[in-house]
Write a protein that binds this DNA or RNA. Sequence first.
RNA 1: GGAGAAGUACUCAAGUGGCUGAAGAGGUGCCCCUGCUAAGGGUAUAGGUCGUUAGCGCGGCGCGGGGGUUCAAAUCCCCCCUUCUCCGCCA
Length: 423
Amino acid sequence: MLDVKDLREDLEGVKKALSKRNKDFGLDKFTELDENRRKLIQEVEELKNKQNTESKEIANLKQKGEDATKLLADMKELSDKIKELDGKLKEVEKETEELLLSIPNIPNEKVKQGLTDEDNEEMRKWGTPRKFSFEYKAHWDIGKDLDILDPETAAKTTGTRFTFYKGMGARLERAVMNFMMDTHATKDGYTETIAPSIVNADALQGTGQLPKFKEDMFKIENTNYYLSPTSEVPVTNMYREDIIDGKKLPLKYCCFTPCYRAEAGSAGRDTRGLVRQHQFYKVEMVKFTRPEQSYDELESLTNDAENILKLLDLPYRVVRLCSGDLGFSAAMTYDVEVWMPSYNRYVEISSCSNCEAFQARRAGIRFKDNIQDKAQYAHTLNGSGLAVGRTVAAILENYQNEDGSVTVPEVLVPYMLGVEVIK
RNA sequence: GGAGAAGUACUCAAGUGGCUGAAGAGGUGCCCCUGCUAAGGGUAUAGGUCGUUAGCGCGGCGCGGGGGUUCAAAUCCCCCCUUCUCCGCCA
């Protein structure tokens, strides 16, 4: 949610900043709604003030045993008027809220104007894509040939875009997950968590998935619950409607959960392999920071994601998303993209965002240093650290050998219980 | 899933229709006494949010959340959420 104060004081400035997103968000309506709202508040509060005063008078009269019928008749009328205005006010407030909830975050000024991912800015590259001296395979073929990835069986139990991991495939997935969690929870200083992967509508509104992106999620029938699309949702909402002790900031959490995405609108894209599944595992990093430190924390968060790839010795690059590719809640996002031989390009494996106060305002996440201070909104950040399935895919492809086997990256060997080659 | 009980400010807690924005206690700030700790006395403060104002302030809301009854609701009615106890079921 944007700051209402900004909308009141500089609507044109906000519109200009948002125009980078290449769309009109109907902001003009705000002023009218807001003025109407304030007018109604003044009217109804004046009446309520009168009601409060007169009520005391009635209480007085009754206590003295005097007659209050005249006053009561007047008060009935006043009461009805108040109810009517309160009803109108509620409508206007609802409309205002709906408008505010539908407006995306303002891109940071450094974010480049652009339309698609082709306009993203490359920040840096690490490692060199491997040159194969033999005909290399895509990870879905490797998975099939080694009998470690089995989408056909998953189709039988569930449907398309699900995968059974078997044998060393399952162990590799688990190894990658544990390696990532261990690294973040010890060296990087994140508090490790395991969060519910089912979340309610309030939480989803807090992080920005609702109300606009309902179709991207699986809703559980007859409940108010959704399968969580990312642990950013439960972890960020840990502090919903809370006031955090400012001395504790920045707070850093890492979390692994399964993630569920309906992938509506992506029919026919990345249908093979692990890149676009309805269910996948992801290690997520979430930070709560003071406003002035959030961009430094974004850099270190991104570095923490990159570091996993360095330790796995997988070539990657970092891009800063252009305005057209930027997510709804983010002010700035770095995508970390791993080299995927079968795609012959870099593929997103982590998305690290600073949401500034956008989510904090929706979710009511605030902090104060002293009890007498006014609480202010924290900044929230999140980033994958990393998507586990895509990491497995990248390992299978980048570490494949001519004989069809796959060498296990050195750091993962202990996590693989000593297995050095999958064959 | 069934049966009960409960949810009041930072914490504990009183309060069944108007004199309760909310007793009392703890906590916290300041002062005094005592004095290196412990203890005692006095006094102040009471969270959040919305509107208004240059500001002091004034006003509205607020007693888990949402509706309703009433001139008036922490207090009465309905729905929901959460916690606790017991039973059932279950990894």
